[in-house]
């Protein structure tokens, strides 16, 4: 039989309320409080229950997580369940924190449950499965059942459904599905439009996500002493593309020495970007990577230094995750080389 471990707080363990919220992590063999319900519904044996005070987890997070991960090192388990935490804020954050840590360390699925108003939802819904739970412990059995039903699909190797179908908070992971009723996009679009025209409710298939905001960098005080680098997502590379950067859905980037060049010559550099007509950039790569004018600004003394390398990748079909990873890797290098500012030309 598969094995499960359950995390609960001091209150549900029957240790005490607010006065016991500093209770240190403890692991017990067998079932405590809500674990009984879980054990009766899940296709696994709940072998251990971990108990921790909500305040202890909140104020000594690193210590609590480390201690609990240490408990689990010697234990064989297939799935990790925490809560349900209802609308209890500290408990929800604790469940999210420990689920995320356990999932990362042991590579098992971690499942919890919270009410939509619990602050733990927004903090952790992208990392773990958080089921939509009730506001208070009156919903304990219902909430445990939702987690157990889903856990059973995972434990039995069955296909799991979408966030909507299963009842967990959307994790920001989208995937294509074939509709059982085979309703075409044309039909769905026309029906959606008729509803919109008649001021009836409709459901978009692509909710507009909240926009990313990046912290604003401080301005450079003295450009004439600054070291400026050129970076592009326009796919400018030496013609032989030595780093084999993909022309779409890129996962690689390259850096190329321009310290002894005055401009990028056609036939020596080109673009490998497949998302646009390459003719102009192949004929004059400076239209994407403006080396020629940067060298002029360097001669004029407008900038103190032009960084020795330019960095390049391709920005078409490239996933946000890959783009963000490549960006971070390039920034690492730029920081190491004491670059003060970057001109990023995108296409």
């Amino acid at each position: 039989m598969k094995k499960a471990v359950h995390y609960i707080n001091q209150f549900f363990a029957g240790i005490g309320g607010e006065e016991m919220a500093d209770y240190k992590p403890e692991i017990r063999e067998g079932l405590v409080g809500p674990s009984l319900a879980l054990n009766s519904m899940i296709d696994a044996e709940v072998t251990h229950t971990i108990i921790c005070g909500d305040n202890f987890m909140g104020t000594h997070t690193d210590e609590a997580v480390e201690e609990i991960l240490k408990f689990l090192e010697g234990i064989d388990f297939d799935i990790f369940i925490a809560g349900p935490a209802f609308n209890a804020g500290r408990y929800g954050v604790a469940c999210g924190t420990i689920c995320k840590a356990v999932k990362e360390k042991f590579n098992v699925e971690a499942i919890t449950s919270m009410n939509e108003e619990n602050p733990g939802v927004d903090m952790f819904k992208k990392d773990i499965y958080i089921f939509k739970g009730g506001k208070s412990a009156a919903k304990l059995r219902d909430d445990v059942k939702k987690m157990a039903d889903f856990a059973n699909k995972i434990l039995n190797g069955k296909k799991t459904g979408s966030a909507d179908e299963e009842g967990f908070f959307e994790r920001g992971i989208r995937s294509q599905v074939w509709l059982d009723d085979k309703k075409t996009a044309a039909r769905r679009g026309v029906e959606m439009l008729i509803k919109k025209l008649n001021n009836e409710e409709f459901v978009t298939e692509l909710p507009i996500p909240k926009q990313d905001r990046v912290d604003i960098a401080h301005p450079i005080k003295d450009l004439s002493k600054a070291n400026i680098a050129l970076v592009t997502t326009g796919g400018i590379v030496p013609v032989e593309n030595p780093d084999r950067i993909q022309s779409a859905s890129a996962t690689r980037w390259g850096k190329y020495d321009i310290s002894n060049l005055e401009r990028l010559e056609s036939g020596v550099y080109k673009t490998i970007h497949a998302g646009f007509d390459p003719a102009a950039a192949d004929a004059d790569p400076n239209v994407i990577l403006p080396l020629d004018v940067m060298k002029e600004y360097l001669r004029e003394g407008k900038i103190g230094k032009l960084h020795k390398y330019f960095y390049s990748t391709v920005g078409t079909g490239t996933t946000q995750k890959e783009a963000s990873r490549m960006g971070k890797e390039i920034v690492e290098e730029l920081k190491k080389d004491k670059v003060d500012g970057v001109i990023l030309v995108s296409t």
């Binding site: 979408s162 966030a163 909507d164 920001g172």
Partner: peptide, 14 residues
């Protein structure tokens, strides 16, 4: 992706 309207696929959150 049957964008002309024939697609019976959609995108869902998982």
């Amino acid at each position: 992706d049957g964008i002309s309207g024939g697609s019976i696929k959609t995108m869902k959150e998982f």
